[in-house]
Write a protein that binds this DNA or RNA. Structure first.
Lengths: 229, 229
DNA sequence: CATGTTAGTCAACAGTCGTTTACTGATTTT
DNA sequence: AAAATCAGTAAACGACTGTTGACTAACATG
């Protein structure tokens, strides 16, 4: 009921959102999002953040918060959108750049983990909320991950040696690959940013896990073959 | 008659902890732990629980809490210990019962996931705190998982076809197996307990992932072989 | 320029929070 | 039987919480 504006703002026909006032609003909104991310850098979890804390760090008064979000949950949702938006952007770019012929696995792992490091705070937020947030946020995150797995499955389907995979098995394989990089992400977020060795090890380990997985995939017959036990 | 009813309870000789008072204290302590688990059944995360809430559900006054724990973090630590204690007990039992010759993978997956379902609240707590709790709790959980991976690696080392795995690769393989069941655990905790179909699907999927992994392992040469890309 | 819009402020509200202090009364020890 | 222990209570504290309504002043519109 707050959005029922009777007066239509006839802002410039060509430039819908560019008054100084809208600019300022956007900056403040960003400040609030950044404040939340900053508070999450430490030990805190999103659900333990208070609205007042966020406004304090963001530089406005508590009441001002409501000019931007209906409550903390809405802010959380905005953070999820931001995070996955940049992930999808990254994947679009990577796809456009074309797949390198060899070292395919290493390139993918490196691209993704580099992206994680460039957006640590976003991924830290996602990692924390994935299992612990409100069900609304958890479901939103899960949806995004499912989407992501789907994209990977499509990419995989173009490999000749995976042609015999049916759709379910392809989804499963993509899911396992995503799980590998997600697990690596979580190690990466815990590693000291300065510890280049530890970081290198995480990259190498993820690549190795991928290779082991692909080795299994190259022989896969739908799970009917027996394996030494 | 006065002499007949004389009680000598010089705790320390034969019966260190069994007065009615100690009994009561233990019951209250359990009530607090259970109260926390109960509150965690819903949307809440541990870090958002208040001490007062826990005592309210547990049936004592806030001040009484301090007779049992120095603060909420200590209670969290006790929950972690409880959870992994029962997991280790289960693995000890399973090992003692001996490994079934065939259907090894299915048996292991089933045993573990059954255990998860029998201790949903514990595992829900662990899942929520794994990435989102205080660093003390996170580190404690991580330590326990590393321990667990180690145990699995030892179990794996007894398989003939894994003899050529060096120690690092064995740890990696064990880690991937644990990751598979952990991922399945998290799906299981989100599934409706009454939805037998969904649960069945989660079991089957985890088994399938294990088989794919073992297939890769059976050909593994340390990651030097190239895979179709 | 006059008028409306609105991002952000200010002050107050009713609650909840963790923690402390002094206490009570049942159980244990001597 | 007296004395000591101690799990749990009762009340109070200062601090912090989300949300509100009335406000101000910079901006936008006509």
């Amino acid at each position: 009921m707050t959005t029922a504006g009777r007066r239509r703002r006839t802002r410039g026909a060509d430039d819908p959102n560019s008054g100084q006032r809208d600019d300022r609003k956007r900056r403040t909104r960003r400040a609030l999002l950044d404040a939340a991310l900053e508070l999450l850098e430490g030990e805190r979890s999103f659900s333990s953040l208070s609205l007042r804390e966020v406004t304090r760090v963001g530089g406005i008064t508590p009441a001002g918060f409501y000019r931007h979000f209906a409550g903390m949950e809405e802010l959380g949702h905005a953070l999820i959108e931001d995070s996955f938006e940049s992930l999808h952007q990254m994947m679009r770019d990577a796809r456009k750049a074309g797949l390198p012929p060899a070292h395919m696995i290493r390139a993918s792992v490196t691209t993704f983990l580099d992206h994680v490091q460039a957006h640590r705070s976003h991924f830290r937020f996602i990692a924390k909320e994935r299992y612990s947030g409100s069900s609304v946020l958890r479901i939103a995150i899960r949806k995004e991950i499912r989407l992501w797995v789907g994209e990977v499955a499509v990419d995989l389907s173009r490999f000749p040696f995976l042609q015999r995979f049916n759709s379910d098995d392809l989804q499963m394989l993509a899911g396992m690959m995503v799980n590998i990089v997600v697990a690596a992400t979580e190690l990466l977020l815990d590693a000291e940013q300065t510890d280049a060795d530890a970081i290198q090890r995480i990259y190498k380990n993820a690549e190795k896990q991928m290779r082991l997985l692909m080795l299994g995939a190259s022989l896969w017959d739908g799970g009917r073959s027996s394996v030494p036990e």
